[in-house]
Structure formats: C-alpha cells, structure tokens
C-alpha cells in the first residue's frame, strides 16, 4: 500500500516534470510570440499541477495546501498570458508569415495604430553600449 502510493506519486512527479520539459522546448522552437505564449502557458500549468498531485500522493497531510496552490495557479497563469498577448497585439508585435487570418486587427485597427511603444526592436546582443 505504502509503496503503491509512493510509486503513483513518483510517476506523477516525473510526468509533470516531462511536461515542463516539453514546455521549455516549445518556448525555444516556436516561430513567433503568440505561439510561444501558447506553448508556455499550457504545459507549465498542467506540469505544475501534476507535480503538486505527485507531492500530495507522497505526503497526504499537505493535501489542502497543495490543492490551494493548484487552484490559484489555475486562475492566475492563464490571466497573465491573456493580458500579455493582448498587450503584445496592441503594441504591434509582428506575427510569423505563416499566420492565416487576423480578425482582431481587422476589427480594431485604431487600437494598434495608437500605440506609441516600439517594442519590436530586435537587438539581441549583450554588447557594450555606445
């Protein structure tokens, strides 16, 4: 009985960690920002929830607190992704050329034009400043 719980918990821990790994890989491989947000938010949410479930199997007395952490995570993580995606779209981050259709830009052209932020700069060198 004890070892069955241990095995289940360990398996859930490993599954969660591998989902996190897929998330990191997706973050690195996806071509543009919106797809990266998608890869980041889904896999980390499920991965962390699985790790929490695994910890709950290993230590059942921590269950309530782990449940609370999972619940908070389930509401805060998508929220920040949505707000960030909206801000990026308003800031005029360009999409990958494979993008088929953009209904949001068609319906609200003025919100993008109004933004004065120039965040799409592509300087990625950690160089000396002039």
């Amino acid at each position: 009985m004890e070892s069955a719980m241990d095995f289940m918990g360990g398996f859930l821990l490993l599954a969660g960690a591998s989902f996190l790994l897929f998330g990191g890989l997706g973050l690195l491989r996806m071509p543009d920002l919106y797809n990266r947000i998608q890869a980041g938010t889904k896999t980390t949410t499920l991965g962390t929830i699985l790790v929490l479930a695994g910890a709950a199997f290993l230590h059942p007395e921590w269950g309530l607190k782990l449940l609370l952490i999972g619940l908070f995570l389930l509401f805060t993580n998508p929220l920040s992704s949505q707000v960030l995606a909206r801000a990026a779209h308003r800031g005029g981050i360009e999409k990958t050329p494979e993008t088929m259709v953009d209904k949001l830009a068609e319906d609200f052209p003025e919100s993008i034009a109004k933004s004065t932020t120039s965040i799409s700069s592509s300087s990625n060198k950690i160089g000396d400043k002039s």
Binding site: I119, S121, S123, K125, I126, G127, D128, K129
Partner: peptide, 11 residues
C-alpha cells in the same frame, strides 16, 4: 546579472 548590467535596452 550579466544581462542586467550589459544589455542595451533598459527595459
């Protein structure tokens, strides 16, 4: 920290 000290954009 290296990024924080040396990168060009302040944000």
């Amino acid at each position: 920290a290296l990024v924080a000290i040396r990168v060009k954009q302040i944000s």
